[in-house]
Design a binder for these strands. Structure first.
Lengths: 163, 163
DNA sequence: GTAGTCCGTTGCTTGAAAGAACGCACCAGG
DNA sequence: CCTGGTGCGTTCTTTCAAGCAACGGACTAC
């Protein structure tokens, strides 16, 4: 069936996963972060079906995360480059790397990241901006913010969210 | 068709997204982080189909991210609690929140996180552990790590990965 | 003119999501 | 005792997209 859409939920997580949509989206972006730009390279790196790749690239362009830029004439060929909005997703990919390295890599990290200049290992972690410390889910509470739609507030509270 | 599996790729991103699988997985976990534990609550909060929810909860339990714990007899009823492996995913959810708040919330964040003790706003960011600074995708390189399978190394290099 | 490159499009098959209905075990009220 | 309510799934049908392979089209190189 058609995918359920989450893009209008009053929740940043829901909107973000709606944007990513499925696994291929994330993997295409991963490749993009690693420097891949062309259809053929995405396809052979990922082994994704060509029709699916076409569809996903269009979605990413439409969502403003990739930009389709011509790199030659006759015939016109385009490459797909990250926009700022796309680059913002790098943090999500980094969080995935972190988790995969920690929990899904018994033999050690399959790939490591290094600073291009200094050569130092790059080791992403998620922290609170102000304390600089990791965040424990049990130590936080959730409440409606400025972007929470007025008309759903009563309902949400009645349902026991924001308890 | 059957979903393509990524769990054996030599890439932590691929393994992590394979684990998350689809959007529902992430949203179920989000609810779990916010304190939801019971079938009925997941279902009504998310509006997910009951059959799909059943399937997803089983997957999460099987993957070791949730634990099925009885909370009453006659009839026996179970609730679903996060394990440590599941709690590790919170950082990914936080990265999603961050991105959604930054790029997908024109009216401001729909929900805000607060420290349960201090009441201070919690503002997740992804940084390098050593420098404490955000990470720019253009400033990093990728190379094979200890967990990269020996037998694929030659192939990967020939393909121009790790260039 | 034959082969190769790059980027898609088309067509077929199958499996999974969506959605609603049903089942089952128990409790509470009248 | 019978009805209604709660909590947790299971079953069924329909629809839509992933997976896969083949094809096409515009060039370049030999």
């Amino acid at each position: 069936m058609a995918r359920t859409r989450f893009d209008h939920w009053p929740c940043s997580v829901a909107r973000a996963v709606d944007l990513l949509g499925d696994a291929w989206m994330v993997l295409i972006l991963r490749d993009a972060f690693y420097g891949v730009r062309r259809f053929e390279d995405f396809q052979s790196n990922l082994g994704i079906g060509r029709n699916v790749l076409t569809q996903r690239l269009s979605s990413l362009v439409e969502a403003g995360m990739l930009q389709r830029v011509p790199y030659q004439d006759r015939p016109v060929r385009h490459e797909y480059r990250l926009t700022d909005k796309g680059r913002g997703l790098f943090d999500i990919v980094l969080a995935l790397v972190r988790y995969g390295d920690d929990w899904l890599a018994p033999d050690g990290p399959p790939v490591v990241l290094r600073d291009r200049e200094t050569g130092a290992r790059v080791d992403p972690i998620v922290v609170d901006r102000h304390t600089g410390q990791p965040i424990d889910p049990r130590a936080i509470t959730v409440e409606p913010g400025p972007g929470f739609p007025e008309e759903h507030l009563a309902r949400a509270k009645a349902d026991g969210r924001f308890a």
